[in-house]
Simulated assay, not measured.
Amino acid sequence: MNIELRGLAARDGWPAPGCRCASCNRLRSSGVRHEPTLAFADGVPLDDCPRVEVPGGWEVSAPGGGRVLVASGPGACPEPVGGAVYDAVLLDLAGSPEHLGRLRHLGAVTAATEVFAVHVDHRVPSLEELERRMGYWRRPAEGPHRTLLLGGSRSGKSAEAERRLLAHPSVTYLATSEPRPDDAEWRARVEAHRGRRPSWWRTVETTDLAGALATEAGAVLVDGIGTWLAAVMGAADAWENPGAALPRVEELVDAWRSTSALVVAVSDEVGLSLVPTTPSGRAFRDLLGHLNQRLAAESEETALVVAGRVMELG
């Protein structure tokens, strides 16, 4: 089966008429316009192929016999027919990339399924950014593979980590923060993170990262290394004697190096801020900076996230 896209944008095209957002204006300034979604299967418009309506879209039968699941528009998440395995899916990946992960989780999308983004609009900054994301979603990597994402507070590093794994059928989220039952603001942050993660992801709260990396074999998100180190330093009474935490640091680096999982880990970039005013603060900064370097040296990918923008470091 051959799928051809002659348009990939939402109904009004991209840029949207009269829209002044940066995404639309960037395209308009460069003289580029993407036409509304128009797809062909084996040379026949999908609109002319036999179809069955499903919630959120259609199941289309291609002339050559292939099965295609198609989103009806922006925000639509087409439900698969029970037991169906699709040859191709055309989805609103600009708005709902996690739906691709759900379809994989259900078995409706496999490694052989072709994946296309349709109904694209200014929900993504640019076509180049969509293609960057599609690199993670179209053919999810398998382990062993390690990615370290660095960034400051509220830089968007956690959102980027989650985004990279949205298309995976099963993800284990390793939350490394210790419980804070009396801290309402912290609980609100935790719930906000939990609320934006797909419901089929498994959450494990642990500071035994080395043990988790040794036993997990699928996709793993670690959020984050900084909170793990703070917990380790507290348990080892290492705030005044940082060397007491080094055995746990070495244990983690060894587990990171030898894991069979696909791991995306978030860590704080501490080298760009002011020098901490307390000895314990300086001890934490120095040890975390050291650990970040060790993990980056053993990672296939490392990136810095600043204001939601991603800069690949190699």
Rank of each mutant, 00 (worst) to 15 (best):
D92M: 09
P279G: 12
R20Y: 01
R154I: 04
R163L: 14
A111N: 01
T147V: 07
A261L: 09
W239P: 08
T113G: 06
L288V: 03
E59A: 11
E131A: 14
G64P: 12
R189S: 11
S170R: 14
G195H: 10
S199G: 09
D286Q: 10
L106F: 07
P50T: 10
L5V: 06
L304Y: 06
A265P: 03
L304N: 04
P198W: 02
I3H: 09
A192M: 12
A303F: 02
G75T: 04
T37C: 13
A167P: 11
R202Y: 03
A265Q: 02
S153R: 08
T259C: 14
A244R: 14
S199Q: 12
A307K: 02
R104S: 06
E128V: 14
E98Q: 14
A76G: 04
G156S: 09
E205G: 08
V275W: 06
P276D: 11
D12P: 00
V124R: 03
W137V: 04
V306Y: 01
G31M: 03
L27A: 06
E4T: 14
P247I: 02
G13K: 07
V85Q: 12
A39H: 05
S23A: 15
S199T: 09
L174V: 14
D268I: 02
H105M: 08
L150E: 00
L91H: 07
D286A: 15
Y136W: 15
P55T: 14
R187H: 10
